[in-house]
Design a protein around this nucleic acid. Sequence first.
DNA 1: CGCATAATTGATGGTTATCAAGACCAGTGG
DNA 2: CCACTGGTCTTGATAACCATCAATTATGCG
Lengths: 245, 245
Amino acid sequence: MSDYESCLVSKLSNYMDLSDTDLDLLARLEAEERNVPQQASVQKAGDRIEYLHVVKSGWLFSAMDMPDGRRQVVSVHHAGDILGLPDIALNHGALNVHSVTQAVLCPFPKTHLDKIFETSPRLTALLFAISLRDQVIFIDKLRAVGRMSARERVAYFLLDIAHRLRVTNGSMTDTFRMPLTQTEIGDATGLTSVTISKTMMQLQLDKLIDRREGNIILREEAALIALCDYVDRYADMDTDWFPAA
Amino acid sequence: MSDYESCLVSKLSNYMDLSDTDLDLLARLEAEERNVPQQASVQKAGDRIEYLHVVKSGWLFSAMDMPDGRRQVVSVHHAGDILGLPDIALNHGALNVHSVTQAVLCPFPKTHLDKIFETSPRLTALLFAISLRDQVIFIDKLRAVGRMSARERVAYFLLDIAHRLRVTNGSMTDTFRMPLTQTEIGDATGLTSVTISKTMMQLQLDKLIDRREGNIILREEAALIALCDYVDRYADMDTDWFPAA
DNA sequence: CGCATAATTGATGGTTATCAAGACCAGTGG
DNA sequence: CCACTGGTCTTGATAACCATCAATTATGCG
């Protein structure tokens, strides 16, 4: 650590003022760096989890695989995310983590979380809150996959990615890069690559989105939001109940 | 509290030895009691969340509703569960909580969690771990709804309920009461009541389950587990990384 | 340039939704 | 005691949506 600002710190300070102690605790999480090539496996389901990772750059995703090859992509990770958190409660990881692009990760042993729990109730509360927020996002995804049509699911998927990217990149407008293949988007939405292709083509013909050079452009974001009843969980966070500094 | 043992304490002490301080902290969460009739609304999406609830007895469920009436049931709650946890990160609740049977709840203000964060890093870690475990369960549900056939989803749903019930009722065997209607089971699995009826009938004809007097009997639990690749997340919890007592 | 991978597109089929009618059941009131 | 009622469950007929299969085009990389 480092001449450039930590993404984790920048993401967390959106929600709460961090004390010097908090900054020190977080710095320990990003002490090491590790480069990961594109399309590489970072963690396999069933492995014993010793290390968590902070994403410094790159795109990755977590997926749960079935014995016959069916796959559910459960989240897409970007700079500032902590990988492996849901798994720490379990002896054996449930998820496969896979890089999409080249990525830089900061591994840290899960025992470093102790120190946070013992030292900073306020930072603990924030990590807790973020993990509960993530839980709500999983619930949103469950609703999307369980109760929405293909068109609604794709709209939901694109909006979720866009809003997530805006958290760590405030300047982002309505255009973003989409390095995931349509097969991967299908695995994230519970559809097939063919349906993704047809649905996105339809959204494009209806002028709700556009696609150019690997970018997605949300041309009618309000219409997309109405289409799938999207709620931005990244914005509305309640920190009032946290312990005092 | 009280002549009979708290369900929350009994559920938590499965995972960790609780100190006297911890027991005091938990007792505060169950200081009040509130009776809820069957089929009543406990909490509405959009409400500002001030109080959480510990379930003392009864069945309830949390659901996310869509404007046009579609509904996704996201979890079924039993004695020992804490209601409203995923919502505390947000200013406004995302979920509707609804009672199925008569129920007894213990409401407590969400600021009581502060005291836990400040006083007991170890209990904090346990609550954190449980909420992460719940997150993994949501991920399992996402996979079920996203990638499984109706038959597999129903098997998954029944196994999940059974294994959850065994946490607070060790003596339970393969038979349990099912107070949810098939419409509600459909909303939990992303199917319709008609499909639930046909699928359960088929499972019964195949002698994997039985149904008598409102009870479900898992006749071939191993076969059901193989059918949907079920993993019991309630058993495999790692507490080694917790801060020392 | 040539190869591998990804995306598009059309034809066909399967799983589940939808619709609708009847059976069952518990509770209610005549 | 028995019709009446409202709800749930069952069952069959039909339809819609998406999966599957397959062929072609586009894209990217060595």
